[in-house]
């Protein structure tokens, strides 16, 4: 029994880690430029199709395929910033959010036109599906890697935000963009860095999403990011620690329900999780780590 619990705990950590990576990417972009990036998940889709294409061309070496997927996710993020978000940079948050929403629809449907709506299987290496033994417990290697990568990414992000000038500038820009520019720092560079980081985190999460699903389809990124949004709100929207906490909380809640719900109503899991989060937010509208009210704090 305790083996089972340990297995599920690892499962929760890896699922939560995926949400945390995605929610962090959303929070970074939001904190720097107040943009709710609905197209965040579609960058993952771009990365997923990029990996799929590379595999189709016969490139099987994961050391080539995986970095290429991450790279293309980052490229998609940067390209999207240039094409869609830069023109609305000084507009209202609603305008930015709807722009992102529109961009998201465009990417999904371009994937639909060229790839069709059916999932396309991606050949994964055998070792991805294997498990490692921890005493008497079998843990899928994907989960171990995902948890590890998430923790490493969070540590790396903290280091970047603390010890590099551009990281400091990003933290400063979250509160006061004009003064950051007075330091001679290009606002553009800070924003592009934020997008690059969010794309990188999305790319990492994308690899694991692909590994779990074993297929690409036009909505592969949209659906998980929907949950990441909810995780970010649960943690406190715009807060980076909140994104991590919200992500893991959502992962744990999902896996717990999966374990305890009777078979007949297991299908309702997502509805129940979202509803429970709604109840939490009734009592704590700012989320777990959110500040309230943050009206007009940003100038």
């Amino acid at each position: 029994m305790s083996d089972y619990i340990l297995q599920q705990a690892f499962n929760a950590l890896s699922v939560g880690g995926e949400y945390a990576l995605l929610a962090l990417g959303l929070a970074i972009v939001f904190s720097v430029m107040n943009l709710v990036n609905f197209a965040h998940g579609d960058m993952i889709t771009v990365g997923g199709y990029a990996m799929f294409l590379l595999l189709m061309f016969g490139v099987r070496d994961p050391l080539l395929v995986l970095p290429f997927g991450v790279l293309m996710t980052v490229a998609a993020a940067l390209l999207l910033e240039r094409i869609a978000f830069k023109p609305v940079r000084n507009a209202s948050p609603t305008t930015g959010m709807l722009t992102a929403f529109g961009a998201s629809i465009v990417i999904q449907n371009i994937a639909l036109i060229f790839g069709g709506s059916r999932p396309k299987a991606v050949p994964t290496a055998d070792w991805i599906a294997s498990s490692i033994s921890l005493g008497s417990v079998q843990i899928p290697i994907v989960q171990v890697l995902e948890t590890g990568v998430t923790i490493a990414a969070i540590i790396g992000l903290v280091a970047l935000l603390r010890y590099t000038t551009v990281g400091l500038a990003m933290r400063a820009a979250a509160k006061d963009v004009p003064t950051v520019r007075l330091m001679g720092i290009k606002a553009d560079r800070v924003i592009l860095t934020a997008f690059a980081i969010s794309g990188f985190l999305a790319g990492l999460a994308g690899i694991f999403i692909l590994a779990r699903r074993g297929a690409v389809d036009p909505f592969m990124g949209f659906a998980p990011v929907l949950k990441a949004f909810v995780a970010a709100v649960l943690g406190g929207f715009g807060s980076l620690p909140g994104a991590v906490v919200g992500g893991f909380a959502l992962g744990i809640a999902e896996v717990t329900l999966q374990v305890v719900l009777p078979q007949e109503i297991a299908g309702f899991r997502d509805a129940i999780v979202f509803f429970l989060i709604g109840v939490v937010l009734v009592f704590r509208p700012q989320g777990i780590l959110g500040e309230r009210p943050d009206f007009g704090e940003k100038s």
Binding site: A84, P87, V88, A91, S92, T95, G96, L98, T99, F101, G102, A103, S104, I105, V106, I107, Q108, N109, I110, A111, L112, I113, G116, S117, P218
Partner: peptide
């Protein structure tokens, strides 16, 4: 298939940029 979606998305983005 997907052209209508592209149309909707592109229209929203253009509208937000040109006439928010």
């Amino acid at each position: 298939f997907g052209l209508t979606g592209v149309f909707l998305g592109v229209t929203i983005v253009l509208c937000m940029i040109l006439r928010p």
